[in-house]
Computed example of a mutant assay.
Amino acid sequence: MPRAGLDHDVVVAAAAEIADAEGLEAVTLARVAAALGVKPPSLYNHVAGRDGLLRGVALLGLGELAATLREAAIGRSGADGLQATAQAYRAYVLAHPGRYAAGAIAAPAPDDAEHQAAGAAVLEVMRGVLRRWSLDDEQTLHALRAIRSAIHGFASLEAAGGFGIKVDLDTSFQHLIAALAVGVGRAD
């Protein structure tokens, strides 16, 4: 019989907390079970092993990231929208590195419609921000890849302490996104 109060969402939330605090490699059935005060086999009532834990963390992270970006994008588009959503994206990556790594780095499996939809929700917000530039589909895809790569790279370096020069990181990030906005505006 499943433990009272323990369900899929509780198990995934515990895994997400561990991922954020200790990294994805720390997310194991044994570690999550210990955090929840249960034996590892009892988790199989709620998730399909470690892969199920990681998939759950990925879906949670993508859902949270999409909601964060939607909130930042409200009433904004173009360079202003790009700056607002990029700042929100960066803040999410820094606050939730494990959830982000689980969901936003690797592409979803081609047969996982739920995971694909969660990733598409993030991209749809960013597509909305880019509409102001009237890009065609291919240009939009190139812009999305550039933006995602830039934010991921900056936030990853920042989280790892990769910026040793004492210049304000927020200002550097604003410059990066402003340069991307200029580049998007010049897309052929």
Score class of each variant (00 low, 15 high):
Arg31Ile: 06
Arg31Pro: 02
Val32Trp: 00
Val32His: 00
Val32Phe: 00
Ala33Glu: 11
Ala33Leu: 12
Ala33Lys: 09
Ala33His: 10
Ala34Ile: 11
Ala34Ser: 15
Ala34Gly: 14
Ala35Asn: 14
Leu36Gln: 13
Leu36Ile: 15
Leu36His: 12
Gly37Met: 02
Gly37Tyr: 03
Gly37Glu: 02
Gly37Asp: 04
Val38His: 13
Val38Phe: 13
Lys39Asn: 13
Pro40Met: 14
Pro40Gly: 13
Pro40Arg: 13
Pro40Glu: 14
Pro40Trp: 12
Pro40Ala: 15
Pro40Gln: 14
Pro41Ala: 10
Pro41Thr: 09
Pro41Gln: 08
Ser42His: 05
Ser42Arg: 05
Ser42Tyr: 05
Leu43Ala: 10
Leu43Asn: 06
Leu43Val: 12
Leu43Trp: 08
Tyr44Ile: 07
Tyr44Met: 11
Tyr44Cys: 07
Tyr44Arg: 13
Tyr44Trp: 13
Asn45Pro: 00
Asn45Val: 07
Asn45Met: 08
Asn45His: 11
His46Met: 01
His46Val: 00
His46Gln: 05
Val47Glu: 06
Val47Trp: 07
Ala48Ile: 12
Ala48His: 15
Ala48Trp: 14
Gly49Thr: 10
Gly49Gln: 11
Gly49Cys: 11
Arg50His: 08
Arg50Ile: 11
Arg50Lys: 15
Asp51Cys: 11
Asp51Tyr: 12
Gly52Leu: 09
Gly52Lys: 07
Gly52Val: 10
Leu53Gln: 02
Leu53Phe: 04
Leu53Trp: 02
Leu54Trp: 05
Leu54Glu: 06
Arg55Tyr: 03
Arg55Lys: 09
Arg55Gly: 03
Gly56His: 04
Gly56Asp: 04
Gly56Ser: 06
Gly56Glu: 04
Val57Trp: 05
Val57Phe: 09
Val57Leu: 11
Ala58Ser: 00
Ala58His: 01
Ala58Phe: 00
Ala58Cys: 00
Leu59Ala: 02
Leu59Val: 06
Leu59Thr: 03
Leu59Pro: 01
Leu59Trp: 03
Leu60Ile: 01
Leu60Asn: 01
Leu60Val: 00
Leu60Thr: 00
Gly61Glu: 05
Gly61Trp: 03
Gly61Gln: 04
Gly61Lys: 04
Gly61Asp: 06
Gly61Tyr: 05
Leu62Val: 08
Leu62Ile: 09
Gly63Met: 11
Gly63Pro: 10
Gly63Gln: 08
Gly63Lys: 04
Gly63Cys: 12
Gly63Ala: 12
Glu64Arg: 15
Glu64His: 15
Glu64Phe: 13
Leu65Ala: 05
Leu65Arg: 01
Leu65Val: 06
Leu65Ser: 02
Leu65Lys: 01
Ala66Ser: 09
Ala66Arg: 03
Ala67Arg: 07
Ala67Trp: 03
Ala67Thr: 09
Ala67Asp: 13
Ala67Ser: 11
Ala67Gly: 10
Ala67Gln: 11
Ala67Leu: 07
Thr68Ala: 10
Thr68Cys: 10
Thr68His: 03
Leu69Met: 00
Arg70Ser: 13
Arg70His: 09
Arg70Phe: 02
Arg70Glu: 15
Arg70Trp: 08
Arg70Cys: 07
Arg70Ala: 12
